[in-house]
Write a protein that binds this DNA or RNA. Structure first.
Lengths: 219, 219
DNA sequence: ACACAATTGGGTACTTCTACGGAGGTGCTT
DNA sequence: AAGCACCTCCGTAGAAGTACCCAATTGTGT
């Protein structure tokens, strides 16, 4: 996650050309409202799903893309992969509902330029845009914090790392046997963890656990 | 859902005093941005969860509350119950992500004044507010349509009514036995439906089905 | 009257999960 | 060194869900 050379260095007189991608018009309007008073920013387009986003990036060649993760058709992270695969030069700033450290890591690994939560303040958003436009990488305060101590992040149940890992797999509909195979441990061990998770969360059967996983942003 | 007498008739010279409730500041900003050009509207406060919403309704006595459903602490529908229980006079307009007919029905049953989806256009939103402020009831075009033919709503899997009902119960973590009890049918019948749901959706085990339920807005 | 879908219920055999119980090893903190 | 949390694994038993098969009833539309 080092400061990388911008793929398209922002000319310091040209405005930053911005593409907004979110499946909710209301959110896009919110972003517009926040940014329209900013100098040196120009919103050149909007998309409401990942597939459209890729197309528009290709057509409009924006300097910066603000990208939601959860969208129909094609999600934000997959869109990033596609954009990077096609070598379309632009900075990408992720704007997500979920403070899921896995998302953040994947986003960083894919070469995005920042990760914002949707409860971000106006000031933080404009700052993040400036940093991202210059090719830096910005994460929300709260997230940066939760990345430090890896655990705790958003977890009122005090699950351990292993338990969260297994809960994620359960929520994905995997069987204990599968999970055991993937983690290279015994089925009995998976059962133990599963049992511990149930006890900590009070989350009954697989369906209940899946809801809790979603609640924790592990979905 | 008949046209009911407004609990607080909107004086036609006084502006409508509006309280915005959504757990995402960004969405609140979007609403603000859309409404600030409107005449006869005054945003007097914001809240980011249901509990705070109830408190603010009591303190500020708004004419109209725009209320999200999915929020931490206390969800929107529960907040409506509380507001109605305390007999706080105000119109309530639900603004939700989900076009779930159950939500709409529950919202209508609780005496709200409308149900908007978050992908609502600016025009539709202002219209809905005007109608709601006068004590009417407004539903999004798309939703009104899906309420007609009860089925289909948002369901690419062609589930039947009964199957959706049972899927909802499964997602709630209920056991087949419980579901059978509540619906007063045999466990075997629940299994039959469950099996049909699995086949239609390809949704493997309980965890998978729960994810699909969430996807369909039945969570 | 007939076809069709939906709902209901069942048989059998198998897999998976759940609820108890116990235990050994590792690594960190005090 | 002792305590503690975490991860690992096991036994036994029963409950729950899954995968196949089947059929009767009801209602809807043609």
């Amino acid at each position: 996650m080092t400061m990388q050379e911008p793929t398209t260095p922002a000319q310091h007189d040209q405005p930053v050309r911005l593409l907004i991608v979110d499946d909710h018009e209301l959110v896009r309007d919110g972003i517009r409202a926040r940014l329209e008073t900013e100098q040196g920013l120009e919103i050149i387009g909007e998309a409401d799903n990942g597939r459209e986003a890729v197309t528009l990036v290709e057509q409009l060649q924006p300097d910066l893309v603000m990208l939601d993760i959860n969208m129909p058709e094609m999600n934000g992270l997959d869109a990033v992969e596609e954009i990077r695969a096609r070598e379309l030069p632009c900075q990408i700033l992720i704007l997500s509902l979920y403070d899921n450290s896995e998302y953040v890591r994947r986003a960083a690994a894919l070469g995005t330029n920042g990760y914002l939560l949707k409860d971000v303040s106006q000031d933080e958003m404009t700052m993040a845009i400036k940093i991202a436009a210059k090719g830096g990488f910005y994460v929300s305060e709260s997230l940066a914090h939760s990345l430090d101590d890896e655990n705790a992040s958003n977890d009122p149940y005090n699950l351990t790392d292993r338990e969260r890992e297994i809960l994620t797999a359960i929520a994905a509909g995997k069987l204990n046997k599968q999970i055991a195979g993937e983690l290279d441990i015994s089925v009995r061990t998976v059962e133990s963890h599963r049992s511990a998770i149930r006890q900590k969360t009070g989350g009954g059967n697989a369906a209940g656990l899946t809801r809790i996983a979603a609640e924790l942003g592990l979905a």
